[in-house]
Design a protein around this nucleic acid. Structure first.
Lengths: 266, 266
DNA sequence: TCTTAATGGTTCATATAATGAACCGGTGGA
DNA sequence: TCCACCGGTTCATTATATGAACCATTAAGA
């Protein structure tokens, strides 16, 4: 393990639970010699990756990180930021994975990845701008947005399939509540016959839903078991996806997506 | 120079102008041996601080940066994030520096720093919620916000001093335009007699003004020369301040604040 | 009050890990 | 075909990271 890797590994020890760590804490967590850890800390601090509280002498993550992260989000297109995590998800799921961003109430395509494991799989055509209420993505977005958004969506004719009446308000509210409870939205044959999907929202830096990620699979492939399996995969990657876009999943939803013991392990 | 510092210095070579750099580019920029640079790059990539484009083999800033930066903004209070840069600014200016955040049209105090160089200096009392139109900060915010914001501000009685009529619309528009042109707002004796100030906006991650930073000084101390001197100091630190809060200054304003040659040097 | 055990930080002989000249294989002009 | 440049690798040499022992300070505990 290179010296660089050892030093950078120190940064990963900082967490929401423990944002401030002292020299001894880090020495214990790493098992390395105190002098070694200290020199690493000094190097990281001089580069601005850590900063030291003058009073407590504890270390915390430094300003260089926000500077460089800002540079990244400005210079790297969002497609590139998503690619590795979405590709991995597609490989694990063996199905088509789909990321859309919300522009008004339009779901505009951002990125997709497909895996060729299954002989029969959902083909992706840019069937642009599907109505919000006809997709798992749309419902995932609405279920994790503030209340007023639903009212606006119900009023807008673009959110439903052409030549249909607005969705029943009480039914939709009940469904969105169920989605918010279990953490993901699902759909069976709603938009295209034979195509089912599961979806979760993607959150921005202010923890507001602004995009969605979905997995589409042939309805014929499986029943409830398939759905829950794919939803689990999706939710496990939920935090990675939001983080890749520079956002943050609200704590209670993160807890819903990845149960306590898994979070502790990571 | 430690190995860690050398590796981390590589990250600073990535910029908006050159977000993708190849091995040879980095080797030239650092003057170090190619093998050395390559091993550093691999270490950084494995830690997620860089990622390599599979096609071009060029490197770009990696996802670990956004992850850690998000952690920082969530765990470190904004006061702490500002402290070092504001303290430095106060020391350089020798005057009271002041950061306020906008909540609706209220300027709420976030952080301040005072330097004791001058025997006579502006004393800070928490004269809470000064009206927008009576402060340099307020005008700096309005001058760098979308047009509609001014309309709302003019309509709100809280934005002006009690028992005064609303500001003349044309006059204000002309002043805000002048502020936007030169990059900073100024005030002489408007809110408190004997107190002048200069101010600039602070931008969030979406490059929207959401807070302000101002320097206050006794009006008696100097005339136009003092004002431009302090404004220059303020604008030079403008990018650092926004970046410290996790935000980004819009390019054209960054250019206005720090002329081309200085930017090239950094 | 004197002890003890934490804390953060430093020193310097030692050993390990970083270094760089030379090398490889591939690609894209001239 | 040649040549230059690219990203990447190898291995003897050397410089650098390492860690046991040390110091100074603080805060309980007896």
């Amino acid at each position: 393990m290179s010296t660089i890797a050892k030093a950078l590994a120190l940064l990963d020890l900082f967490s929401e639970a423990q944002p401030r760590l002292g020299l001894s804490d880090l020495q214990r967590l790493t098992g390395r010699d105190k002098a070694t850890v200290h020199r690493h800390l000094v190097a990281l601090e001089q580069a601005g990756f850590l900063e030291q509280d003058a009073a407590t002498r504890a270390y915390r993550l430094g300003p260089a990180l926000t500077r460089l992260a800002g540079m990244r989000t400005r210079t790297v297109p969002e497609v590139e930021m998503l690619r590795s995590v979405i590709d991995n998800l597609s490989r694990d799921a063996g199905e088509l994975v789909h990321v859309s961003r919300l522009q008004g109430f339009d779901l505009v395509h951002v990125h997709h990845a497909e895996e060729h494991d299954h002989p029969v799989r959902v083909s992706f055509d840019a069937y642009g701008l599907p109505p919000l209420f006809a997709t798992a993505s749309g419902k995932a977005y609405l279920a994790f947005s503030p209340g007023g958004v639903l009212d606006l969506a119900l009023a807008d004719p673009r959110t439903r399939l052409p030549d249909t009446s607005p969705p029943n308000r009480l039914e939709i509210e009940a469904e969105l509540k169920r989605i918010a409870m279990r953490g993901y939205a699902s759909n069976r044959d709603a938009l295209r016959l034979g195509v089912s999907s599961v979806a979760i929202p993607i959150f921005d830096a202010a923890s507001r839903a602004f995009a969605t990620c979905s997995i589409a699979y042939p309805t014929g492939r499986g029943g409830k078991a398939t759905e829950t399996h794919l939803a689990r995969l999706l939710m496990q990657r939920g935090e990675d996806i939001s983080q890749a876009m520079g956002g943050a999943v609200p704590p209670q939803i993160a807890e819903l997506w990845t149960p306590r013991q898994e979070r502790a392990a990571s």
